[in-house]
Computed example of a mutant assay.
Amino acid sequence: MEIALRQPYYDSILLIERLHRHFLEVLKVELDRLGIQDINNVQALILYNIGDDEMTVGELTARGYYLGSNVSYNVKKMYENGYLVQERSPHDRRSVRVRLSEKGLGLRDKVSALFERQIESLDKGGLSSEELARANEIMRKLERFWSASLDYSNFTMTSAA
């Protein structure tokens, strides 16, 4: 059974990475189409995920599964370009909370419109809601598997020695 799983497992890892890169390229093309040059595709996705919420960089990292240093850098750039508003937390002066500015809300709405256009086109691409739900179910199983693998008490490595 182990040998039968090897290639499909490896293919899944590569496909997930490739899908993410393709999606980011779609987002980049949309930003270019809109003539938006002061934010990149990753920053636009972070901005979209903030939505109407207000949160710390740590909360954003946990919610979006972004790398911490990249989130801090991207939040700084989005703030400098007017997409985010930053405020010190009244409860913890070390903590900075971010939310979308008017400019950020406008871009979030444009990204949302892109998603809506894509959703309307999914059936033309041969994807049903049931197929997407099944794919999501499988990806959640992989996520749980990888999360459980991080619990080192359950993770054993065999030595080749």
Rank of each mutant, 00 (worst) to 15 (best):
V26T: 04
S72C: 00
S153H: 12
G126E: 07
K28V: 03
R21S: 10
E30H: 14
L14H: 08
V85L: 12
H20L: 08
E120P: 01
L5H: 11
D151K: 15
T158H: 12
N154R: 15
E25M: 14
Q86W: 04
K110T: 05
E25Q: 13
D92P: 09
T56N: 04
S159V: 11
S147Q: 09
S159A: 14
V57G: 07
M55K: 00
D123T: 07
G126I: 07
G35L: 10
S72K: 13
A4C: 10
L5K: 14
V71Y: 00
L84C: 06
D53A: 06
I13S: 02
V42A: 08
I3E: 13
D11W: 03
L114P: 03
V111H: 05
Y83F: 12
I16T: 07
P90R: 15
L19A: 15
V29P: 00
R88K: 14
Y9A: 13
L105H: 04
M78W: 06
A113I: 10
H91T: 11
V98H: 06
Y9H: 02
W146Q: 10
L127G: 00
K76N: 03
L31K: 04
L114N: 02
Y83H: 05
D151V: 15
L132G: 11
D123A: 11
G35Y: 11
G51W: 09
A160H: 08
L127Q: 02
I46F: 13
L47Y: 05
Y9P: 00
E25N: 13
R97T: 09
R6H: 13
V57Y: 03
Q118V: 12
I3A: 12
M55G: 02
L27S: 04
L47G: 01
E137K: 09
L127K: 02
D109K: 15
I13W: 00
N81V: 05
Y152Q: 12
P8W: 05
R63F: 09
I16S: 12
S95Q: 15
H22E: 09
T156N: 12
E120M: 00
A161Y: 10
V26Q: 10
N81M: 03
K76C: 03
T158S: 13
G68M: 13
E137Q: 10
S89Q: 12
N81H: 15
S95L: 15
D11N: 05
N70P: 01
G106I: 03
L14C: 09
G68K: 15
E2N: 14
L105W: 01
S112K: 10
S72Y: 08
F23K: 06
K110I: 01
Y48D: 01
E87G: 02
G35M: 09
I119A: 11
G104L: 06
L150M: 12
L24K: 05
E54S: 05
S101V: 06
I138P: 01
R63M: 09
V29G: 08
A133P: 02
Y73D: 02
D123Q: 07
E54A: 05
R6K: 15
